[in-house]
Write a protein that binds this DNA or RNA. Structure first.
Length: 799
DNA sequence: AGCACGCCGACT
DNA sequence: GTCGGCGTGCTC
């Protein structure tokens, strides 16, 4: 038998299957989706079996060297998704498969030089390396001095040395030492009466009557390793190794919750979903529910229905919203049936969660984008919460969108896919209007709670009145009022496109990164300037680099600056600040939020990360410091993002008995994306935005492709870009628009110049083929180093 | 991605 | 004459 294998070499030349002979002893064992070790040229590498066939069209086939899995890591469904992704995002098949396998299973190949003859037969220069051992790692041998290559290759030819390749997995399963009672218990007289600890410990183990981890046992019994060892020696206990899961949520108790009685509106929304589940038919639903309308309870009950059918559920949440509060709702309802996957887990923890899914020990996965590849085999329902979030699109290769994968899997398993949002993406809402998706409106908050009252403050007017502070009079008064009443407030500062840069007040010079065309950000903690793109750091200048003036200051508002200002104007307020700096440490995020939940602060001040999912009863005021900071980013979705964010942030207020109020500060209060937040009505915003999209020919009226070209030499970038544009204009149909080439909004990153061009099309059957040809055409220049051409179908970021 | 093969310049 | 620089092409 022959196995068709995708080898672990990410390059376009190897982006196809290679045929290998299946040795007789593995006949019937090797299946598609398994990882194998195969000889490839002079070395050995890992590969994925994608097909098993009777014979090869290839003349000589080498045998498979080793099998790495007992069961396939990729199901047939996942293999199919991989192929589909490779085609639709123009990535290598290998890269697509690697998305679906936990990083711990990825292998590295260790290259070793093994001594075959006696050491003294070697040239004296090499003998020193084999004093302790008869083998040495290649990289170790080549350290510092590459001139040894010749000596080594001669020794190999002479049969003194040999090169070995060792395929090793990166991650390991974790084991712990466990104790259990020995089958034949010796007489208790073996333990002297005065050995109290030994008697206690033995009695304890007898009572528990199942294996106990040694470390837990020692802690519980307040004793030392010595006691256990003695009991083992005397034959009362035996010790063994057992595989354990690294549980990131170990020790956290989740209070069980029972299904709530659904309101009539919730009932209307859930019944088509349950119908779809009962009929085992695929449908994509767009659940448009305002903030606080009880979407999560609908999710929970729909999942419960699927579980009762013996099927599984995947829930996607934006990374930033994957807070303990969110996890708690799922753990509370489904307990140990839930696995959680997010980027905060270590490689080992991710691997363990993945194995729980694979072994069917859990039926629900809650996770960020990549959780869509959970290796379930009987999916009943897929939920994407906050479906408009851009984090569902991966911004590096493979540039896939989790929504597309979800719908693929929904069709495969004939199960419903639910896209939930208070502010759907224009694309999704437009599809719902055209009945491609089924719209499920949930327009009222539970218990008929009012939507928060929104007031937009014109900051230009404030300035005219002589208020130069970052708080308008209104916001300041209301904050003060809440602090006095003992109610809580949330202050939201949008850092996107509004960072703290350093400028000279005399000449206007702005400190920029020497490798990237972007201004440096001031970091108070180090009193240093940092580039957010390449990490370059330099110390804060004392004088202006350009004119020597001492009047060089940082501008813009960081959360730190807001915090200082708050301390000055409202010294009685207790403030918790949440941003990247204060939440970097593991668990810091939860700590700060639970402190706020216990009422240990009056004001929660933060960036994007506090916009979503927060649900605290005492929040009655939400303040947005600069609503329009995002509006001026050169991106056709900036108005949509502004509206979504404002609506999202507003939703944090008045979710319980106390009414909520929102103050939005803006320099462009009349812009529809800000103005329409006042009424919390999505539909008018949608209509307005659609007219803009239509006029500018943007999605959802067209599809887009963004091609980014970068190279250290600007002339090279320009010639390549122009060639690409000319080729596209020639190949693509008349109706298609090819824009550019132009310099990217970030014209230089890490010393590489960047140009881009854009394609807008409605119907272009040969599109992917044409784009492949571009990749193929520049392959040589890409391979030998400097040129990069990235192609993004349906882009979400334009930098 | 590696690695071998192969074709030109500067050296014992 | 050879050693070794790296451009080109292949890996079942």
């Amino acid at each position: 038998m022959i196995a068709k294998v995708i080898v672990d070499v990410p390059s376009s030349q190897t982006d196809r299957t290679f045929d290998y002979e299946i040795p007789a002893e593995w006949d019937g064992v090797i299946q598609p989706g398994m990882r194998v070790v195969v000889p490839f040229g002079p070395r050995q590498i890992q590969g994925f079996v994608v097909e098993v066939v009777a014979e090869s069209s290839h003349a000589k086939t080498k045998p498979i060297q080793d099998v790495l899995d007992v069961l396939p890591v990729l199901t047939d469904e996942l293999l199919a998704i991989g192929d589909w992704l490779a085609e639709h995002t123009l990535c290598f098949k290998l890269s697509a498969y690697q998305l679906m396998v936990p990083a711990a299973l990825r292998t590295k190949v260790k290259k070793e030089v093994v001594l075959l003859a006696k050491r003294d037969h070697l040239p004296s220069a090499l003998q020193v390396y084999f004093e302790q051992n008869d083998r040495i790692e290649w990289s170790e041998l080549m350290k510092q001095d590459k001139s040894k290559v010749k000596d080594v290759s001669q020794a190999i030819k002479a049969g003194l040395l040999e090169v070995h390749y060792q395929v090793e997995e990166k991650g390991k399963t974790k084991t712990e030492r466990y104790i259990r009672l020995n089958e034949n218990q010796p007489s208790l007289e073996e333990i002297p009466a005065r050995a109290v600890k030994q008697h206690e410990l033995l009695r304890y183990v007898q009572n528990v009557d199942k294996p106990i981890s040694v470390s837990v046992l020692l802690k519980d019994m307040q004793t030392t390793r010595q006691t256990v060892t003695t009991l083992i020696k005397k034959g009362f206990l035996e010790e063994f190794e057992q595989e354990v899961y690294r549980d990131p949520l170990a020790g956290i108790e989740f209070a069980r919750t029972e299904p709530l009685k659904l309101t009539e509106k919730q009932q209307n929304v859930i019944s088509p979903i349950l119908d779809s589940l009962d009929q085992k038919s695929h449908k994509t639903f767009l659940l448009h529910g305002v903030t606080g309308s009880g979407k999560t309870e609908v999710y929970l009950q729909a999942i419960d229905h699927a579980l009762k059918q013996g099927r599984e559920a995947i829930v996607l949440v934006p990374e930033i919203a994957l807070t303990p509060q969110m996890v708690q709702r799922f753990k509370g309802r489904f307990g140990s049936k839930v696995a959680v996957l997010h980027s905060g887990l270590s490689m080992g923890e991710k691997y363990d969660e993945w194995r729980k899914i694979k072994r069917k020990e859990v039926q629900v996965v809650v996770g960020a984008r990549s959780a869509i590849f959970a290796p379930f085999t009987n999916i009943g329902i897929i939920i994407i919460d906050e479906e408009h979030e851009t984090s569902y699109k991966q911004e590096e290769n493979p540039r896939y969108h989790a929504k597309d994968v979800a719908i693929f899997r929904g069709e495969f398993h004939q199960s419903p896919v639910i896209l939930g949002s208070a502010t759907p993406s224009l694309e999704s809402y437009a599809r719902a209007k055209k009945d491609v998706y089924h719209l499920l409106p949930l327009t009222e908050r539970v218990h008929n709670r009012a939507m928060p009252h929104v007031e937009v403050v014109d900051m230009r007017e404030e300035l005219r009145q002589g208020n130069r502070s970052m708080f308008s009079m209104t916001l300041f008064e209301k904050l003060k009022d809440r602090v006095e009443k003992g109610e809580q407030s949330v202050l939201f500062l949008n850092r996107r496109g509004y960072s703290t840069f350093v400028m000279c007040r005399d000449c206007g010079y702005v400190a920029t990164c020497e490798h990237c065309d972007i201004s440096l950000t001031y970091h108070r903690s180090h009193h240093a300037l940092k580039c957010h793109y390449c990490g370059h750091e330099e110390k804060m200048p004392e004088t202006c680099d350009s004119c020597g003036s001492e009047h060089i200051r940082f501008f813009g508002s960081g959360t730190q600056k807001v915090e200082e200002e708050l301390a000055r104007v409202l010294p009685q307020a207790r403030v918790i600040r949440m941003d990247i700096d204060t939440t970097r440490r593991k668990g810091a995020h939860e700590k700060l939020l639970s402190a706020f939940g216990r009422g240990e602060a009056d004001i929660l001040l933060g960036t994007q990360m506090i916009a979503k999912g927060l649900d605290f009863p005492k929040i009655t005021l939400v303040g947005v410091l600069a609503a329009d900071s995002m509006l001026h980013i050169p991106d056709f979705r900036s108005a949509e993002r502004t509206f979504q964010l404002m609506e999202q942030v507003s939703g944090r207020a008045g979710r319980h008995d106390l009414e909520g109020e929102v103050i939005i500060q803006s320099y462009t209060p009349d812009h529809y994306s800000i103005e329409l937040v006042k009424t919390h009505e999505y539909e008018p915003f949608f209509q307005m935005e659609m007219t803009h999209r239509k006029a500018g020919l943007y999605p959802p009226y067209v599809f887009m492709v963004l091609i980014n070209i970068s190279h250290p030499e600007i002339t090279k970038v320009i010639t390549v870009s122009e060639k690409i544009v000319a080729f596209l204009k020639r190949e693509l149909s008349e109706a298609t628009i090819v824009l550019g080439p132009v310099a990217s909004p970030l014209a230089r990153i890490k010393d590489r110049y960047r140009y881009q061009c854009m394609i807008k099309y409605r119907n272009e059957p040969e599109l992917r083929q044409t784009l492949r040809e571009i990749q193929q055409h520049f392959i040589r220049e890409i391979n030998q180093g400097q040129l990069q051409v990235s192609i993004d179908l349906h882009p979400y970021l334009f930098s």
